[in-house]
C-alpha cells in the first residue's frame, strides 16, 4: 500500500496511521483495519473514516457504509463500562429476559447493558461477557455482583 497521502500532524493521527499500516498490505484489509482502529480508540470516528478511505483509495461513503453495517464498530466511544448480556433463544429459555430486566434496574445509567445474540455457551445460560471475560449460569445475585464490580 502506498504511503499516507497526508503526513500525520497529531499523535492521534500517527496512531491511526500505524493501525492502518499494520493491515494495509493484507487481502481485503478494511475489516482488520476497522477492528484495529476500534480497539485503539474505542470508535471509528469521522476523521478516522476519512483517513482510512484516503489510505485504501476508497470513498468516505464506502468506509462509512461498512462501519455502520457492523454492530462492533461505533461512531463515538462508549464512556460507560459495558456488560454484554445474551438475549438469544437459549438464554431466553433459561430465564434470560427476566434477568435482563433486573440487570437494567441494577445498572441504572452507570453501566451499559448491551444485548448480544449468542456467546455459544447455550447449555449454561444466562450468559454475559465483559471485555473478553465470560460469565455463565447467571442469576439475579450473580448479575448484580458482576455489575457492582464494574
Amino acid at each position: 500500500m502506498s504511503s499516507m497521502s497526508q503526513t500525520p500532524t497529531t499523535d492521534r493521527e500517527a496512531r491511526l496511521d500505524a493501525a492502518i499500516r499494520r493491515h494495509a498490505g493484507e487481502e481485503g484489509p478494511l475489516l482488520p483495519i476497522l477492528h484495529a482502529v476500534q480497539a485503539e480508540f474505542g470508535c471509528v470516528d469521522e476523521a478516522a473514516k476519512r483517513r482510512i478511505a484516503d489510505a485504501l483509495n476508497l470513498t468516505r461513503a464506502e468506509v462509512h457504509g461498512v462501519v455502520s453495517f457492523y454492530h462492533d464498530f461505533h461512531d463515538k466511544p462508549e464512556t460507560r463500562p459495558v456488560l454484554k448480556l445474551c438475549r438469544a433463544e437459549s438464554c431466553q429459555a433459561r430465564g434470560g429476559e427476566a434477568l435482563a430486566a433486573h440487570a437494567e434496574r441494577v445498572a441504572g445509567a452507570r453501566v451499559k447493558i448491551e444485548p448480544v445474540y449468542c456467546l455459544g455457551l447455550c447449555s449454561v445460560g444466562p450468559n454475559a461477557m465483559v471485555g473478553e471475560d465470560l460469565y455463565a449460569r447467571l442469576d439475579e445475585r450473580g448479575v448484580a455482583e458482576l455489575i457492582g464490580a464494574m
Binding site: C86, A88, E89, S90, C91, Y117, C118, G120, L121, C122, S123
Partner: peptide, 11 residues
C-alpha cells in the same frame, strides 16, 4: 460465524 443460538460445536 456460528451465530445460531443453541449451537456451540464450531466453537
Amino acid at each position: 460465524d456460528e451465530g445460531d443460538s443453541g449451537t456451540f460445536a464450531d466453537r
